[in-house]
């Protein structure tokens, strides 16, 4: 990915993220968050994570944002323009964010692993086809031999080959979440 595009999408992600934190109107915040997630999905694509980038758009920018907007409109929340700001909380929040950013920049600039780039760690698809050989499905090795990265197939293979139990636990978690939502949103009978 050209450096210019990286900076563009990083700017979109962080700029709209900033608008989520500072916006006064909840609808503006929700739409900024959607834009921020689109920028983030582009960064995922630039890291050769096509499946994760697609899922980011589908789940976050699609499902989660619709849920947020639905709740904002259902509850008819007014924007907080009239309210006074909570100054100690804002000062401590900004201070903590700045300190955390500076610390992360300091740690990252001091380590060797952070100097890896797409140029000095290229993907070796043809070699990978030979190395994983019989361990993978034939469709994966075929894709690798033709020089494409079968991203979704490899994630699926990892999930079902090594993390089958964890996948079922997550499925159960979603079921529990669904039941929880139904129970929570059931209107309670008013006390006599």
């Amino acid at each position: 990915m050209p450096p210019l595009l990286f900076y563009l999408f990083a700017l979109i992600t962080l700029g709209f993220g900033f608008m989520v934190v500072t916006g006064r109107n909840p609808v503006t915040c929700a739409l900024s968050l959607a834009a921020s997630f689109v920028g983030l999905a582009a960064l995922f694509l630039s890291l050769d994570a096509y499946f994760i980038g697609t899922v980011q758009i589908l789940v976050y920018a699609g499902a989660v944002m619709v849920l947020f907007l639905f709740i904002i409109m259902l509850l008819d929340i007014k924007s907080e323009e009239g309210k006074k700001l909570n100054l100690p909380a804002i000062v401590s929040g900004v201070l903590l964010a700045v300190l955390l950013s500076l610390q992360i920049i300091a740690v990252v600039s001091g380590t060797d692993i952070a100097k890896k780039s797409a140029e000095n760690t290229p993907l070796a698809l043809a070699e990978a086809a030979g190395k994983i050989g019989k361990a993978a499905l034939p469709t994966i090795t075929n894709d690798l031999e033709t020089g494409t990265l079968p991203d979704a197939k490899l994630i699926g293979f990892t999930l079902f080959d090594q993390y089958g139990f964890h996948l079922q636990v997550v499925g159960l978690l979603l079921l529990v979440g669904t039941i929880g939502v139904v129970v929570l949103s059931k209107r309670e009978r008013s006390a006599p």
Binding site: F6, L14, A97, L100, S101, I104, V108, A114, K115, S117
Partner: peptide, 16 residues
């Protein structure tokens, strides 16, 4: 663009 760039963007998003 190195891994460090992505980590800094990630850290700043987390801080925000």
């Amino acid at each position: 663009i190195t891994l460090g760039h992505y980590l800094v963007v990630s850290g700043m998003l987390f801080a925000l």
